[in-house]
Design a protein around this nucleic acid. Sequence first.
DNA 1: GCGACAG
DNA 2: ATCTTGTCGC
Length: 229
Amino acid sequence: MQPAIHHSWNISEQEAIALQKDLASKVIRTDQLDPVKLVAGVDVAYSKHSNTLVAAVAVLDAASGELLETVTIQDQEQFPYVPGLFSFRELPPIIKAFEQLSSTPQLVVCDGQGLAHPRRFGLACHLGVLFDIPTIGCGKSRLIGQETEPGKERGAMTPLVDEDEVIGAALRTQTGIKPIYVSIGHKISLSTACQWVLELSPNYRLPETTRLSDQAVRKVIKDLEMGTP
DNA sequence: GCGACAG
DNA sequence: ATCTTGTCGC
């Protein structure tokens, strides 16, 4: 896959914020998906040993959950972690991984927020707009907004609200486990996003897609530490 | 001024 | 995110 939009990544924090405000207008918050045959998950982790970022994309068959393809890539950090500018750190390696992908998913589940962001442009929105592909934002913790605790049962959810706007949902994917924060990335509605996350999380707190990409990332980091080329 | 702050 | 022990809550 190739991005539909390109922009510089070697920019200042102020320029990054301005870019977010500009690109945020391109986010589509309604369902505009093709039939989802393939679902992808993305994750990035930092390898202290090699001082690099490792990104992985896992592609699953949406119906069976079968793992069809995994791409991992290693890259230098180009941008520090700054709350609110997360995508400028993680997207460069993620984009390189997507460029290596031979299959084309119809939906991408991201490890990070989408609209649930100060400028309504979290990592999931950024990835979705650049590739013009439907994306869902999945956060393990909250960046902004307030919510009441959802019911204890799997599937229970409450709105995540910021400045009188619903920006996402706190969704209980497993009974007895902390909820996750789901938000629109691109070309999907919040309710459809929550449906997909639930469907993809039958056994774990996070969707299978992110679990498998996380697994791939950890394997690469482990191999790096053991000195296995 | 203080706290909060995706990974 | 990553590195870790004891500690806290259910």
